[in-house]
């Protein structure tokens, strides 16, 4: 966690991957900020954790693959993905089956995370 980083940005994503175009937009904002070498954190909250499910195959519904885009995040030096532990449990998702750079956080840890970034962008 970049506790003293200047202009660090936490992008909070709360939407499912294909229910709307919001999921892709939120990731693209994170990538754009990272492309400008800003420290970026990504926090998946609530329905947002559904973006982390692997083996997505959206060609049948004619949109691009969110899971693949998430796999490219390390190339933008977005190394750690934070996830809402409570939402993972509610959906019965096992963190072991999700991307390996995932860090599940409880409510108190998420509250602390909010304070650790200079800016928060909410989707």
């Amino acid at each position: 966690m970049p506790s003293n980083a200047k202009n660090s940005l936490l992008v909070v994503v709360r939407h499912s991957p294909y229910g709307s175009s919001v999921a892709r937009s939120s990731l693209e904002v994170a990538l754009a900020a990272a492309a400008f070498e800003q420290p970026v954190g990504l926090l998946f909250v609530g329905d947002g954790v559904l973006q982390l499910i692997p083996d997505q195959e959206p060609s049948g519904i004619g949109v691009r693959n969110i899971a693949k885009l998430i796999q490219s995040l390390p190339l933008y030096d977005i190394e750690t993905l934070y996830a809402d532990e409570q939402a993972l449990q509610r959906y019965g998702l096992d963190p072991q089956t999700l991307p390996q750079q995932l860090l599940p956080l409880n409510t108190a840890a998420i509250q602390a995370l909010f304070s650790n970034y200079d800016h928060i962008l909410s989707f």
Binding site: P17, E57, P58, G60, V63, A67, G92
Partner: peptide, 12 residues
């Protein structure tokens, strides 16, 4: 099925 495949949850 199309939506379950998109979401990667067919086996879940």
């Amino acid at each position: 099925e199309a939506d379950a495949s998109a979401a990667g949850i067919v086996n879940l």
